[in-house]
Simulated scan of single mutants.
Amino acid sequence: MQRRTIEPRPGWQQTVEAQGLVYPLTRQADGTLTPYWDESAYYEFGLPEIEALEDVVAELHRMCLTAAEHIVTTGRLADLGITDPRVAEAVAEAWRRRDELPSVYGRFDLRYDGTGPAKMLEYNADTPTSLVEAASPQWFWMEERFPGADQWNSLHERLVDAWRKQATLLPPGSPLHFAHSSADELGEDLMTVAYLKETAEQAGLETDWLSVEEIGWDPLSERFVDNRLRFIRSCFKLYPWEWLTSDRFAGHVLDTLDNGGGTGTTLWIEPAWKMLLSNKALLAILWELFPGHPNLLPAYLDGPRELARTMGWVAKPLLGREGEGVTVHPRGSAFVPAEEPCCYQELAPLPAFDGNHVVLGAWVVRDEPAGLGIRESSGLITDEYARFLPHVIR
């Protein structure tokens, strides 16, 4: 694994925007604009490295499914902050019927420096973004800059195949709706949903889309409807389940939830059981089930334990996103319990390449490793100011 500098292509911004990356710049806290898509450098891997990372991701995914089974069968959903009995039962039932429910994709965030084993930092299996740039612009960048090279990137083909293979699980006679939140001002959610919609169409599915805010409730039929007053039978939503089950429509969501078996009137993708994998409490439960595993970091729910005197720790809110609420505590720091439930994970500083802290985003599509996206940050926390860099395989 090497970081290489390179001259950006002339007109790179217009090029990646035409490929769906309509958010190529990031507005910094001081108001200045800097590249989010950063092709002034790239990462180079050897094929054995990538094959080993694929094996790690496949194993981590299997371990996460084992942990999900443990959480449900032992009744530990409260450890994830899922204390509403109706929500807990919906998640558990979705897990039990998971073979009847479509599930598409997720993204592991990994610490890896090219030498030691990759370490799992977290798993976003409900609403992961950075998909568009990983699947499309970085592939076209490679074809233009390094013709004949390769890349860990089968995302597009696997997504199309995932929709095709799961088409029979969708309710017949109505389009698969795709929904994003209009509160997203950058266009990242919009384009992620648009790209997934395109892959579904290439799989032969009938689709439509709208914003989450446009989804309506028909009190006469007691069903969700779109902005053309059609019943919403199935919907991919880039909207976290913890919001879907707590906003003002939460009662209707639970009343009409299609969790397989012909019950309910609306099927949501990703399914509710993905709440088990996108919660940071999963990290602590994995460490309980697989203590000492080379691809895991020690993690606990009741405090940092021995981490306070050994490596230090990172406190992660159970439902935080893009580094929000994450705090770093070096070895010897005094432990003060957080105001909200957290997972306390061993501090494993992100490796620095030319002063840039890098995290690998490894994609999974329908239980199979599918590709790689790389983000860099100036600090130890990968936040909304991180940059995306492409990669190649030597």
Rank of each mutant, 00 (worst) to 15 (best):
G325A: 03
K274A: 04
W313A: 02
L347S: 05
D354G: 09
V365W: 01
D30R: 08
A90P: 05
E59P: 00
N356K: 13
A18I: 00
S221E: 15
E201D: 01
A308S: 12
E51K: 10
Y385D: 09
V358N: 05
Q2C: 04
L110S: 04
P341H: 08
E144N: 12
W152Y: 07
R4T: 02
L205Q: 08
E93L: 14
D113K: 05
S221M: 13
A338C: 12
H293I: 07
V57D: 00
P294R: 15
Y105L: 15
P240N: 00
G371Y: 01
R228M: 08
W139H: 10
I381L: 08
E306S: 14
S103V: 13
V359W: 03
L301T: 11
L347D: 02
F45Q: 05
G373Y: 07
K237C: 12
D208N: 13
E122K: 10
S246V: 04
V104S: 13
K119G: 11
D84Y: 04
M63K: 15
S333Q: 09
L176S: 00
I215P: 03
R331H: 07
L65Y: 12
V326T: 05
I82V: 15
V91D: 13
P317D: 10
V22I: 15
R366A: 15
T127D: 08
L372G: 11
A58M: 00
H180W: 15
G187T: 07
A194F: 11
G148V: 09
W241R: 03
V160Q: 09
L296W: 02
P24T: 08
E100D: 14
L53R: 01
Y105V: 06
R62Q: 14
L176C: 00
T129C: 04
R96V: 06
G325M: 07
L389V: 14
E322C: 05
D383F: 01
V72A: 07
T245C: 13
I269Y: 01
L60R: 07
L110M: 14
D161V: 00
L210T: 01
G216V: 12
T168R: 15
Q14I: 06
L210S: 12
K280W: 06
V358G: 04
D84F: 01
S130F: 14
A29W: 00
E143R: 15
G260Q: 06
A386C: 15
G260E: 11
Y23D: 04
F290C: 04
T310Q: 02
P390C: 02
N356C: 09
A41V: 10
Y112T: 03
V87M: 02
Q28G: 13
V225Y: 06
S182N: 12
D109Q: 06
V336G: 01
